[in-house]
Design a protein around this nucleic acid. Sequence first.
DNA 1: ACCTGAACACCGTTCAAGT
DNA 2: ACCTGAACACCGTTCAAGT
Lengths: 232, 232
Amino acid sequence: MTAAPSGPSRSRRERPAKPALTRAGIIATAVALLRAEGLQKVTMRRLAQELDTGPASLYVYVANTAELHAAVLDELLGTVDLAPVHAGGDWRERILAVLTSYTAVLFDHPSLARSALLARPRGEHYLQLLEGLLSLLDEGGVPPGQAAWGVDVLLQHATATAAEHAGRDDEADQADWDAVARAVREVDASHPHLAAIGEDLLSGSPPERLTWGFRVLLNGIAYTPRTAKEKP
Amino acid sequence: MTAAPSGPSRSRRERPAKPALTRAGIIATAVALLRAEGLQKVTMRRLAQELDTGPASLYVYVANTAELHAAVLDELLGTVDLAPVHAGGDWRERILAVLTSYTAVLFDHPSLARSALLARPRGEHYLQLLEGLLSLLDEGGVPPGQAAWGVDVLLQHATATAAEHAGRDDEADQADWDAVARAVREVDASHPHLAAIGEDLLSGSPPERLTWGFRVLLNGIAYTPRTAKEKP
DNA sequence: ACCTGAACACCGTTCAAGT
DNA sequence: ACCTGAACACCGTTCAAGT
């Protein structure tokens, strides 16, 4: 080995000195690409280009595109604020805070929410989130069986709500609202209940509706037994 | 015009006598293609091939792929069984029947459920479904404001649950279950609540969990006011 | 063992040109 | 007005061949 003593500073001029491929490096680059250009650009081909290699090389470390996106999601879930789990105060407000933090992460990347709906997450950060939610439901006295199924429904509500926002801008929202409002106005006779409810169908801001949904679920989960059909 | 009297039986041998392009014809072909080969084959190019034309021709009738999929979905929603809306008996059981019928349609085509999550449906069949659900919630004495926001959450639960099943077979489900079960077993010390709940996290059949989710929502919607934060 | 170039089999959408 | 061929700018994944 005749390398210079002062580290591996080879003479070929590469901008960031092309690093060796590793799974961690690939995923880190994928996260950066997500932040910079959105999930639709996190493709095998584009990612390979970013890493200065060919797409085939990535398949040594990543099984396919779905697995890549799942890994990126778990990375992002590391930023969910779990502090409320061990804080004091009303357990309902604290679980709401955790769920809102989770939703905020997905709202920033709605296309990831979409992929979370398909490939059920099971990374380490996701397990930590589950643990936090279960701990709070336990503190609230929710029966374990209901808590076990309940966390799933809570996270599904958050994920689906975020996914719904994928690829929509204010303009699209406005067009949507107009279209439904027009439809509701036009169906007066044949759809009396729809007409009666009218624009209330679309009222409220997304956060208001999201939070109401969480409260609906928390109440329902706490009071709906798994086995029987009785009302609470 | 020197055509033979007996109709437009031109001499060129075309198998089903290539019909003129219409929006209805395009969507009907798309539905047939969906039923035969799944949504992943309902692409502009493949659909054009099926209609014996080029992809560009479709853009006269359909704005883009998303709009095409939305139209296909509304067509499918025509098969949802709305009979329970005007039947007798417990309103809870009847609304459960309608929601289950809706979910069954999406379970047959989970990839459509995925697209329903993105482009909020607003076709005629969807409006009829909304009307039926609102009518039943009204019959059950659910306050209008809660019903208006509630239908959304109920349909979202159904849609997201169906979407989750996209592209999974029994083998994938089993692998998933094994992976989570293993993960739960391994995190004993650091995730005590998760470990305590254990395999109950994944217990129950999909229909059992779906129905429990609907009951949770119905209870929550009926008893959770929109404005205040009080528990019911 | 890891990495690669090249290929296979596809996509959505646009546009100038035809009828 | 409607329809088309051809092009542009991409995809995921596999595989034989190299190091």
